[in-house]
Simulated scan of single mutants.
Amino acid sequence: MKVLLIEDEPNTVAYLRQGLAENGYVVDAEGSAELGLRMAARGVYDLVVLDINLPDRSGWWVLKELRGADCRTPVLCLTCCGDVEDRVQGLDLGADDYLTKPFAFSELVARIRSVLRRGAERQPDVIRVADLEVHLTRRQVVRAGGRVRDFRPKEFALLALLARRAGEVLSRTTIVEHVWNADFDFETNAVDVQIKRLREKVDDPFERKLIHTVRGVGYVLEDRG
């Protein structure tokens, strides 16, 4: 899952980026309402975590603009204001949840999972392609009835993306946009390295191969019989 964090407090950003990354999320962060809105409107994020007190405009403005543009990306609002009126305003503007600062990180993660579960376009918790099973919540992979060894966060994020869009050829640019954050260096071969590691775990021990290269285009996960 890819998360956009719109928050201007550097210590909070660093804390949340590290914690969310440790929980398997890919995180981009932006400190202004204007730039945060532009990033959110791209539609590549599974969730926006939105601070309300931003330096240029209010988070309420960001939320209103997103919903006015028919962007349905789930939004979890963070704010120091815990009044009922503020919570009602956020929910009326289209927020999916509301968390008051200070908060426990474990609660934030639980609320993120809850919001994603409630999403109207939520994918099944287990994605199956041939004899491969990708368990999204448990972050486990099963091939031919046996659990495949543990995956690093980027490996699992890449496999989950390929599984969600099984049968669709994904370009390297598309993969980067969904699996890496905005700091990715396109001059590296990180995508190819991660694909190689995935194949070593998911394909190499088995006769039937599921991860395929489409030369000059990208990669696809599919059963070719």
Rank of each mutant, 00 (worst) to 15 (best):
V44L: 08
Y45M: 06
L50S: 00
I52T: 01
N53Q: 15
L54W: 02
D56T: 09
G59K: 00
G59Q: 02
W61D: 14
V62C: 08
L63G: 03
G68A: 12
G68S: 11
A69F: 10
A69H: 13
D70S: 10
D70G: 04
C71W: 02
T73F: 05
T79I: 06
T79H: 01
C80L: 13
D83E: 15
E85A: 15
R87D: 02
L91E: 08
L93T: 12
G94P: 05
A95K: 02
D96W: 05
D96Q: 09
Y98G: 02
L99E: 05
L99S: 05
P102M: 08
P102C: 09
F103Y: 14
F103N: 04
S106Y: 11
L108K: 06
V109R: 07
I112N: 00
I112E: 03
R113E: 14
R117T: 04
G119K: 06
G119A: 12
A120K: 15
E121V: 03
P124F: 05
R128L: 11
R128F: 06
A130T: 10
D131W: 04
D131N: 15
V134C: 06
L136A: 09
L136V: 11
R138M: 09
R139F: 06
R139N: 10
V141L: 06
V142G: 01
R147K: 14
V148D: 04
F151W: 03
K154T: 15
E155I: 05
L158H: 01
L162N: 01
E168A: 11
E168F: 08
L170A: 05
L170Q: 07
S171Y: 04
I175V: 12
I175M: 05
